[in-house]
Design a protein around this nucleic acid. Structure first.
Lengths: 231, 231
DNA sequence: CCTACCGATCGGTAGG
DNA sequence: CCTACCGATCGGTAGG
């Protein structure tokens, strides 16, 4: 799904009779090295920042020579963007996965919001989650064109939140202006990437509880019958 | 109301017989150039990021030669830290100013929180407010020692929030765990530096209203008599 | 604060 | 994907 890095030597059959195009004989890597570059780049960009990370750092982290990353990505900026794009695509896929049972069982808006928030924390703070933080905190370093492309993916990610927040607003559970509330809520969640420490403090479930308690007003006192008792 | 841009040439009378030790004769700058460096550095660090801003960029922005910033700051990192420290000191001073009348007139916790939030938006989004965003988003680029020093100032800034949030929690207006609520709230506010556009969208007052409505539960229905009617 | 400069590093490329 | 390399830029300094 990438314009970059089409398979090398398209139809230059060289020695090899008719295998898939490989650069050399050893087939233990494939497009695997590219993924390793992405993983290491994400980790380093997050820890040190884009500007403070050299392509040599990244190459060394995956055991390559200094010029080799440019075989997979045409520039350092392209590598950064690839990290962000993979982060978003993976987040969207994960979100759809998380919502699938919710659709089936017809959960109410509160439960759906809880799922969205819990999933968001997972994307942001779960294991191997450097891609989205890089996207959130290095946006200055990509081109306007790339930013626009990312904005589209972000819109896709935010899509499922809208009807949930609208419904909660209509039901009096969300008091603030819906658009501003959404921006503020995402801020509250996204900022956790700056302070959350997986090894100590609250669990992601506790974080989710806190966020729900912070954002949602109690159900209207005189409601029907089915009230949920939250811990 | 800005700590920056103090009036130039305080009492330096022309040739001046026995002034304080100055490097050369021309007295049109003083410690003024240093402040210009800080202002321009803050603006550039915020727009382009620390890594993508060269000391030459900064020098050019204030009309200096490339080596001259190092007369005022011993390294690029020292300049970054100076921006952050000035941002925090100025934010603390501004906060104390904002709270002064509140102390005097004995406002309730809700009103005090509103003042804190409104002031925070001012520090973050008001005119000439590049210093705090730089501090928030370039923390990776300073040394652990500098981070520790900043953490102390941040503690000073957060101090006034604690009793207010505790009181609101005790009064049932803030439902979430207080510590997590504080972290999430600061996230919601701080993130606004990423999306807020002064020229369009909501005003800082509207933003403050939205934040208050998002964070605070309605006052307990059966309270005493003096209830405030919020818009 | 300028002039003149240095050593190091960096992104990137040719050519295999 | 490595070897070998280049031009540019960068942070920083000496010396006035």
């Amino acid at each position: 799904m990438d314009t970059r890095a089409s398979p090398p030597t398209p139809q230059s059959a060289a020695k090899r009779p008719r295998g898939r195009p490989r650069k050399t004989a050893q087939d233990r890597d494939d497009g695997n090295r590219r993924q390793q570059l992405l993983n290491c780049a994400a980790k380093l960009f997050r820890r040190k920042g884009f500007g403070a990370t050299s392509t040599r750092d990244i190459a060394a982290a995956v055991g390559m020579q200094s010029g080799s990353p440019f075989y997979h990505f045409k520039s350092k900026g392209a590598l950064l963007y690839a990290v962000m794009e993979e982060g978003m695509r993976s987040a969207i896929a994960r979100q759809q996965q998380a919502l699938r049972p919710a659709d089936a069982s017809g959960l109410d808006s509160e439960s759906r919001l809880r799922i969205l928030i819990r999933d968001h924390f997972d994307v942001l703070l779960g294991p191997g989650s450097d891609f989205i933080p890089v996207m959130l905190y290095e946006a200055r370093s990509i081109t306007p064109r790339q930013r626009a492309a990312l904005a589209e993916l972000q819109g896709e990610y935010e899509g499922p939140w809208i009807p949930v927040l609208d419904a909660l607003h209509a039901g009096g559970r969300l008091k603030a202006d819906v658009k501003l509330a959404r921006l503020l809520m995402f801020g509250a969640l996204n900022w956790s990437a700056q302070w959350y420490d997986r090894r100590k403090g609250a669990t992601l479930d506790e974080l989710t509880d806190a966020a729900m308690a912070l954002f949602l007003a109690a159900p209207a006192a005189a409601a029907k019958g089915a009230a949920a008792s939250a811990g």
